[in-house]
Design a binder for these strands. Structure first.
Length: 577
DNA sequence: GTAGGGTTAG
């Protein structure tokens, strides 16, 4: 009778569940435990983990299945700490975990984000002999990846015997998600060549690889992987096509993306958002806004990422009014999930700041209902760097160093603000502080894809096998464009050094080397695609414009924030970046 | 009866 009642009681009726609990406890039935199990399952469905645990704790010797059910509930409800304490209790009571326990517990510890807990859990897994189970091992690999322990993850993954497709896919996806797309590409090739494990790739693999190629900016490799997937009859669903769309846009191929988007049989909100974000990144703000309007006309509901794209489109085009309108649209929306988040506030600060409205941006931050984070202050600091707002920049940088002292990028920005204002004593002060704190700027690099490989260049780099030809080409071009009127923009070297020294430091910036490499190797009718990990400097921007005119080659350059499409001496960003 | 993998932003 009670059992039937439990089955009928929907999970959305917690009060009734509690009444049933009291009835079960007073009943003295022999089937008490099985009823309580059913009750706990219902409570978990209702997301009442607290009450579920209470019922569980009062039970006499619950079966391992019930322990697992509780672990599962904690993972689902993102309560890793509770999961951790339950696991400790399990060990204290000498309850032996079974093969289903660890997948949940390892996932919980991943959510907890504590490496030492993770390592001791790993040791426990080994002790109990579950480390040879593929599913458990995969979860452990994912855990180490999430903790940023790439080498531990790699060692563990390599040691797995008879890895199946899911294990491979999980590892490759984690590589991409942690920004190790080059490694993902290596493992994809290993997977395809692997004789021992005999796995064939599937649509999950393709999605991760297209995403990796987008990150790396290697369009040709991405196309090849997609074509191969088609040839092998892999189902290319909307997720695969979205990933392909994103790859085109991240490689600066907006036209290919547009064609694909038009052709897609099925589109979802991610497809639209990908296009809008991609257009914004490529500087095609108008297209982004047109698409946003079309999407709404077609009845597709935008989500918070869509709005990030729209706001960033406004920001890149200096459309302050339109940006404000869109932000208000969100703030006034009845949809709770569309309320502006910190990222949207950061976008607005960027929009105002980029347009030179530094004070308004500052006021905007002071009035926002959420606690501003480093990203938001960072956006304002970036704007101060562009518009030479020395005083405000100093104020913001002080705030930032308080809240995020380990982020060297902000200190670099501040020192750049001082440098641009000629305040070399202040520059020195910031730099020495950075040395004291051990903060360092990330080294800049640029890359170009050619012949199935990605070629990397650092500033002044001579390690590339073709560097002799690259430097010769660079000298040749510099000479020619000087005749056309190119003057090195030495202000963008933020060191207090002599002009000549500045020039030579400038002329070997990584993007110049990458462009020269593209000129040496690429096909004349194809654009040179350069991907840079940081933002580009004024001088390299001017350089690229001259080179595009001199050589009649299109140069597509992706920096940390956006694209620059150079054609015949003009850049798509119209100097607004 | 229960377990591992994918797309948009940062």
């Amino acid at each position: 009778m009670l059992s039937k009642l439990l089955l009928r009681t929907s999970s959305s009726k917690p009060k009734q569940l509690k009444k049933i609990h009291a009835l079960v406890l007073t009943s003295g039935l022999s089937v008490k435990n099985s009823l309580l199990t059913q009750l706990i399952e219902n409570l978990i469905l209702a997301s009442d983990m607290c009450y579920a645990r209470k019922v569980f704790d009062e039970m006499h010797k619950p079966r391992i299945f019930l322990w697992n059910t509780l672990f599962k509930g904690y993972v689902k409800n993102q309560l890793p700490f509770e999961s951790f304490t339950l696991y400790k209790k399990m060990r204290d009571l000498d309850v032996r975990p079974d093969e289903f326990t660890y997948p949940y517990v390892v996932k919980a510890i991943s959510q907890l984000g504590d490496l030492s807990c993770g390592s001791s859990l790993h040791a426990n897994v080994v002790k109990n002999g579950f480390d040879c189970l593929g599913i458990v091992a995969t979860e452990l690999v994912m855990m180490y990846m999430k903790f940023g322990e790439l080498s531990s993850a790699e060692v563990l993954f390599e040691s797995m015997q008879g890895k199946d497709l899911v294990a491979w896919n999980a590892f490759i996806a984690a590589c991409v998600q942690t920004g190790n797309s080059g490694l993902a590409l290596d493992y994809y090739r290993k997977m395809c060549a692997d004789d021992d494990d005999d796995v064939r790739f599937d649509s999950f693999t393709v999605v991760s690889m297209l995403s990796a190629c987008g990150q790396l900016g290697c369009l040709e490799i991405g196309k090849e992987i997609y074509d191969r997937a088609r040839r092998e009859g892999i189902d290319c669903n909307v997720i695969v096509e979205n990933a392909r769309l994103d790859m085109y846009l991240k490689c600066g191929s907006t036209e290919a993306a547009r064609v694909l988007f038009e052709e897609m049989r099925e589109r979802n909100v991610v497809s639209w958002s990908t296009m809008i974000v991609g257009y914004a990144m490529n500087g095609d703000s108008e297209e982004a806004l047109v698409l946003f309007a079309t999407m709404q006309n077609e009845g597709v509901r935008p989500n918070y990422v869509t709005f990030l794209g729209v706001l960033s489109a406004c920001s890149h085009a200096g459309l302050v009014k339109e940006g404000k309108r869109c932000f208000d649209l969100m703030a006034r929306s009845n949809d709770k999930s569309l309320q502006p988040r910190k990222e949207h506030y950061a976008c607005m600060v960027d929009l105002l700041g980029r347009s030179g409205l530094l004070e308004e941006a500052y006021e905007f931050i002071k009035e926002m209902p959420l606690e501003p984070d480093a990203g938001i202050w960072g956006a304002l600091l970036g704007a101060c760097a562009v518009h030479r707002g020395v005083e405000l920049g100093k104020k913001v940088a002080d705030l930032l160093v308080e809240t995020a002292p380990d982020i060297g990028a902000y200190q670099v920005l501040l020192s750049n603000i001082y440098a641009a204002a000629g305040k070399w004593d202040c520059v020195d002060k910031v730099r020495s502080e950075m040395r004291k704190l051990g903060t360092r700027k990330v080294a800049a690099y640029s890359s170009v894809e050619f012949d199935g490989k990605i070629h990397f260049f650092n500033r002044g780099d001579r390690s590339h096998p073709e560097s002799k030809a690259v430097y010769e080409k660079l000298e040749e071009i510099l000479k020619k464009i000087r005749d056309m009127g190119y003057v090195p923009e030495t202000c963008s070297v933020f060191h207090d050094v002599e002009v000549e020294e500045k020039e030579s430091s400038l002329s070997h910036h990584s993007e110049k080397l990458a462009i020269a490499f593209g000129l040496v190797n690429g096909r004349a009718e194809q654009p040179i695609r350069v991907m840079k990990n940081l933002r580009t400097c004024d001088d390299c921007h001017i350089f690229a414009k001259f080179v595009s005119r001199l050589t009649s080659r299109d140069i597509i350059m992706r920096d940390k924030n956006r694209f620059h499409h150079f054609r015949n001496g003009v850049c798509s960003c119209r100097e607004f970046w």
